[in-house]
Design a protein around this nucleic acid. Structure first.
Lengths: 260, 260
DNA sequence: ATAAACTATCACGCAGCGTCAGAGTCAAGA
DNA sequence: TCTTGACTCTGACGCTGCGTGATAGTTTAT
C-alpha cells in the first residue's frame, strides 16, 4: 500500500498529478480510507508507469485512458496514427523554420538598403563577426547555408550585390505606373528573382511568401514604404502575378513531359 | 473605417479574435463609438497583418506585442531565438517518433512470442498483408525500413528468428538467479543485442529505451510477465547495466582515438 | 501533548481563442 | 414609422494538464 506521496516519489510525478488522474478517472486509488485518503497498490504503480510511458510519447490522457481501459484496443493502429500526427507536426515546424530563415536573411540583408547605405554601416565589424559565429553555433551547418553563403562573399562583392538589389527596387518604382502586369515589371522581377540567388535558392513557394512578407512584415513594409509609399502593395500584387505565371509554365512543362 | 466584421473578413480572422486582441492590448481600435462599437482604420489593418505574420511563424502574442510596440526591438535576435526553440521542438518530436517506431516494431514482432507460437498464428494472412500496406501508405519509405526488412524475410526465416528470440528470454529466466550483472546474463544480452539486428539497427539510445519499455509498456510487460513474473523488472535492470557498460567502452574508445 | 509532515478539497491561472447567452444598435424595406 | 434581420457589445465557461496556493483536517514522531 502506497500513499499519494510514496507513489508520487516512486513514479516521479507530483501529488497533484495523482489527484488529477483520479479526478478524470485515469488512475483511481485501489482503496480510499474513510478519512478519504487515497491508497494505491502495485497494480496501481504498474498502471501509472504505463500511463507515463504513453504520456512520454506525446499521447493525450484521454487517448491513454481508451488504450488502457479497453483490452481489445488496437494499440498498433493507434500508435501508427499517432506517428502520423507527430510527422505532420514536424513538417509544419520545418516550413516555419524555412519562413523564419528567409525572414532573417532579408532582415539582415535588406534593412536600410533603401537609404543607399550598405549593410556594413548598420552593423559594426564585431556585430558581423558575431552573426557569423551565432550562425555556426546555433544553426549547425545544415540550415545556415544561406547565411554562410552570404558571408562567403568579399566585402566589395557584398556591397556590389546590395547596390544591385537596391537598384532593382528603384527601377520598379520608376515603372509602377505601367501596371503590375506590364512587361517592364515582369522583366524587373526576373532580375529580382535572379538576384535572390546570391542569398539562397529561391523556390516558387519562397517567392510567393516573399511578396506577402514585403507587405505584411513590419520591417520590410517600413523599408519599402520609404522607397515609395505604394511599393509594398504594388510588390505584393506584382509578385503574385509573377509567381502565378511561373507556376503555370511549370505545369505546362510537366504536362509536356508527360505527353512525350 | 472598418467595423469588426469587415476587418475580420479582410484579415481572415474571427470577430472574437479582434475582441481578444483588444482586451490584451495587442490591437486597439483606432476609434470607439459611444455605442462602444469598435472601428478600425488602415493602420489597424496593417498592424493586424503584421500580427498575423508573426503568429503564423509560431510566436506568442506577448512576444509579438513587444516586437511591434518597441521600434528599437532587435527583431533578428528574437527570430534567431525563436528558430532555436522551433529546432528543439523538432528534435524532441523526432526522438518521440523513434520511440514510437521501436514500440510498434516490437508490438508487431514480439507479442505472444512467449507462447511459443509464431507471430503468424496471431495474425491472419490478410492482417499481415494489411500491415505491410499500411506501413507503406502511412510511413512512406523512409522510416518503415525496419518493417520492410522484417517482411523481406521468408516465412521459415521469420519463424526461425522468432524462435531464436524466444529462446533468449527463456535462457535469461533460467539465469536470473545469478544476478543482473553476472557474466551469463551479459552474454545473453549480447545475443539479444545481435538478435535485434534482424529488425533494425539498434543504437545505444534505442537499447536503453528498450529496457524501460519492456517494463513500463503494458503489452511488453504482460508478455514478459507471462514468461516469468520478475522478468520485466529484471530485464530493465540488466539492460541498464549492459547499456552502461557499452557507453563506457564507447567513451574509452573515443578517448583512445583522441590520444593517438 | 505538541509539532511536523501529510492529507483533503476547492479554486484560480495559463494561451488563445470558440462558443453560447442576453441585451443593445443600426440599416433597410413595407 | 415600425419591423426585421444583421451586427454589436459584454460577460463567462470550456479546453489541456497540471502548478500553485489557501484552508482545514489527520497521522506520525517526539
Amino acid at each position: 500500500m502506497y500513499t499519494v506521496k510514496k507513489l508520487s516519489e516512486l513514479a516521479g510525478v507530483s501529488v497533484r498529478t495523482l489527484h488529477y488522474y483520479d479526478d478524470i478517472g485515469l488512475l483511481k486509488p485501489s482503496l480510499v480510507g474513510e478519512n478519504s485518503y487515497r491508497y494505491y497498490d502495485d497494480a496501481s504503480l504498474l498502471r501509472l508507469q504505463q500511463i507515463l510511458f504513453y504520456r512520454e510519447i506525446g499521447l493525450e490522457l484521454r487517448g491513454i485512458k481508451e488504450i488502457l481501459d479497453d483490452p481489445d484496443f488496437d494499440t498498433v493502429t493507434a500508435l501508427q496514427l499517432h506517428r502520423r500526427t507527430l510527422q505532420e507536426k514536424i513538417e509544419r515546424l520545418q516550413t516555419l523554420i524555412q519562413t523564419v530563415d528567409t525572414t532573417i536573411m532579408h532582415l539582415i540583408g535588406e534593412i536600410d538598403m533603401s537609404n543607399k547605405k550598405t549593410i556594413f554601416e548598420g552593423f559594426s565589424e564585431e556585430k558581423q563577426k558575431q552573426y557569423e559565429k551565432e550562425a555556426v553555433d546555433h544553426w549547425g551547418d545544415n540550415a545556415s547555408q544561406s547565411i554562410k553563403l552570404w558571408h562567403s562573399y568579399s566585402d566589395e562583392r557584398k556591397a556590389q550585390i546590395m547596390q544591385e538589389g537596391g537598384d532593382i527596387y528603384v527601377e520598379i518604382v520608376a515603372n509602377m505606373g505601367k501596371g503590375a502586369d506590364s512587361p517592364e515589371i515582369r522583366a524587373l522581377l526576373v532580375r529580382w528573382h535572379q538576384h535572390l540567388r546570391y542569398f539562397y535558392e529561391p523556390t516558387i513557394e519562397v517567392l510567393g511568401g516573399l511578396g506577402n512578407m514585403y507587405h505584411d512584415h513590419p520591417d520590410f513594409n517600413a523599408t519599402f514604404t520609404r522607397i515609395h509609399p505604394d511599393l509594398p502593395v504594388f510588390l505584393k500584387e506584382a509578385i503574385a502575378i509573377y509567381v502565378d505565371e511561373l507556376e503555370t509554365r511549370w505545369l505546362e512543362r510537366e504536362l509536356g513531359i508527360l505527353e512525350e
